[in-house]
């Protein structure tokens, strides 16, 4: 069996059957126990990867919080579909990146087109944008080729800043005007609730502000 890594997955390819195994952190009580086999096809896999090992919602599919302790067995022909369920558009973007056809969009373009409550994100200065990228994209298995990253062949290229990064830039633009006091990280704060004290991403950003 040939194996390769994609994000937090190990993909094993046999002649007819493939296995896709999570290398993420184990769920409490199961992480060090037997590996659970997830039914495929069906909706079970999507439900599993929507939450982390502590049952917290993962709005960023590439966040390095994939729950562990499971694997999928499927026909080799289904591997891309399984990977797409976990990392949407990842196989599409990898193929387009390798063939030089990936449409890449800058953070400037993305922030400038925002309106409503996200319009203020465009006021985040260059240092702030870079810090937001380092903090959030550093926690993601996708490589921000929109920022000039050169992902290894097996990695997932990210062609455009996502809505989670836009949301962080919005909050960071406000912190830029009035720097908040740091707080202890609170695991009960949802991942993308950057306006809540104790958000791990928020505290990481504030802690690194100049």
């Amino acid at each position: 069996m040939v194996s390769r890594l994609v994000g937090q997955l190990r993909i094993g390819l046999g002649k007819e059957e493939a296995t896709i195994e999570s290398l993420g952190n184990g769920e409490p009580g199961t992480g060090n126990g037997p590996i659970r086999e997830v039914a495929w096809p069906g909706g079970e896999l999507r439900e599993i990867v929507r939450s982390d090992g502590h049952r917290r919602y993962r709005p960023l599919s590439g966040a390095k919080s994939l729950p562990g302790g499971w694997l999928v067995r499927c026909p080799v022909a289904d591997v891309d579909e399984v990977v797409e369920t976990i990392y949407p558009l990842s196989t599409v973007h990898s193929r387009e990146w390798q063939s030089g056809e990936l449409r890449v969009v800058s953070i400037e373009e993305v922030l400038e087109r925002q309106t409503g409550r996200y319009a203020v994100a465009a006021t985040l200065d260059e240092d702030g944008r870079q810090l937001a990228r380092e903090v959030l994209c550093g926690d993601c298995v996708r490589s921000p080729v929109w920022a000039g990253a050169e992902p290894p062949v097996a990695e997932i290229p990210c062609p455009e800043p996502c809505s989670v990064l836009v949301s962080l830039c919005r909050e960071a633009s406000l912190w830029q005007q009035s720097r908040p006091a740091p707080s202890a990280i609170d695991d009960d704060v949802p991942y993308a609730a950057f306006d809540h004290e104790g958000s791990a991403i928020r505290e990481a950003y504030i802690g690194r502000m100049a």
Binding site: H93, E96, R103, C162, S163
Partner: peptide, 14 residues
Amino acid sequence: TWKEEPSLPRALDG
């Protein structure tokens, strides 16, 4: 969707 993946700007990719 606007907030989740696939996102609106990449909705037609592939």
